[in-house]
Design a protein around this nucleic acid. Structure first.
Length: 327
DNA sequence: ATCCGAGAATCCAGTCGAGC
DNA sequence: GCTCGACTGGATTCTCGGAT
């Protein structure tokens, strides 16, 4: 029951927000993600909408003592109101944005509520295109905010198996310009904690890392990651379920209209998801799923698929041309 | 509200390797 | 061999989350 409840909690953030610079203590980070997971992915929210989290749910998701959770959440929601993120838009414009605009602590019902700050809303709701999503349970066992942030950065590029992070960029991202001046401390308190978190059993990836030297100085790290076996198996199962659902729907569509009873409204209620996204044929939808493994785009957005298709064709042609000279 | 303990942060001395 | 900068091990102090 507990597991089932947690498995439905999906966090969606725009890629600009994933790359944003901020430093949130663990409790605030957890609470914020739990609040974001309450937003329905395709729904547009406003700065007037309240979002609530039960302290009990917080304790369950992160496997904490309920009594400690009341105090921690109460304090976290208070402190969260003072926190901000430095977000760089696609045009290079950097803006400091507060996370929340208003907060409530409903003592009797054991809930906290927030209104997200209006400038933050475009980065967490009604996301079409450049966004990253993941299940909250994958970060539930993590004990450091660095682990969660690294996990988000790796999740952004799930189709890759290695990412390079320069130390300078990491210091900037985590607002650590004046902290952990020595590589040893940075490694001990940021990187090693993060990597330990990323390798927790519930996490999505198996991760290892290596320092990258510029002369005798460490200038960055390479992080190698692969999905855990149980994640691959689950993904396969979900895809099979989706395929059989699409097949069932197609059979229903083929069924002659006159043969159906008046009460049979399945065509209206169970229109294939790819039709809802604007795809003209099922083949196009399958093609979108295929190329989304190579190019990062939102498969639920037909216009993005068309752009990605063009990009894919170009890179494919380049790769074929370049093959001889490369090898 | 207070206390306790774990984790975070800082510092110092020693080691290592590159350059001269 | 000397110097310098970067890194490491470990001790100590500080901070904060969680328990009572």
């Amino acid at each position: 029951m507990k597991e089932k409840k947690q498995s439905r909690l999906i966090v969606q953030k725009s890629n600009e927000l994933i790359s944003a610079q901020y430093r949130l203590p663990l409790v605030q980070q957890r609470l914020l993600l739990l609040l974001i997971s309450q937003i329905e992915p395709k729904k547009t929210i406003t700065s007037e909408d309240w979002f609530y989290v039960d302290v009990q749910l917080y304790a369950e998701v992160f496997d904490l003592d309920i009594n400690g959770a009341y105090k921690a959440v109460g304090r976290a929601v208070h402190d969260l109101a003072e926190q901000w993120a430095l977000i760089e838009d696609t045009d290079g414009q950097r803006t400091e944005v507060r996370w929340i605009g208003a907060k409530r602590y409903l003592k009797r019902s054991g809930r906290v509520g927030v209104k997200f700050y209006s400038d933050m809303i475009p980065y967490i709701s009604d996301l079409h295109g450049r966004f990253t999503q993941y299940e909250l349970r994958h970060i539930a066992q993590m004990k450091s905010n660095w682990g969660i942030s690294f996990y988000e950065m790796l999740s952004r590029w799930r189709n890759k198996s290695m990412q390079y992070f320069s130390l300078e960029a990491l210091r900037e991202k985590f607002l650590l310009q004046d902290k952990y001046a020595q590589w040893r401390d940075f490694k001990r308190y940021v990187i090693e904690y993060a990597m330990t978190d990323l390798n927790t059993p519930k996490s999505e990836f198996d991760v290892r890392w290596e320092p990258v030297y510029g002369g005798n100085k460490v200038i960055g790290i390479n992080v190698f990651y692969t999905p855990k076996q149980h994640v691959l198996e689950e993904k396969k199962r979900i895809e099979e379920e989706k395929r059989s659902a699409i097949k069932a729907t197609q059979n229903a569509v083929k069924k002659p209209r006159q043969q159906r009873s008046e009460s049979d409204t399945s065509e209206v209620e169970h229109k294939p998801e790819w039709m809802e996204y604007g795809y003209l044929t099922h083949a196009e939808w399958l093609d979108a799923l295929r190329i989304s493994k190579t190019i990062d785009f939102d498969v639920t957005n037909y216009q993005e698929y068309k752009m990605a298709r063009l990009k894919y064709d170009r890179t494919d042609t380049k790769a074929k041309k370049g093959q001889k000279s490369l090898f």
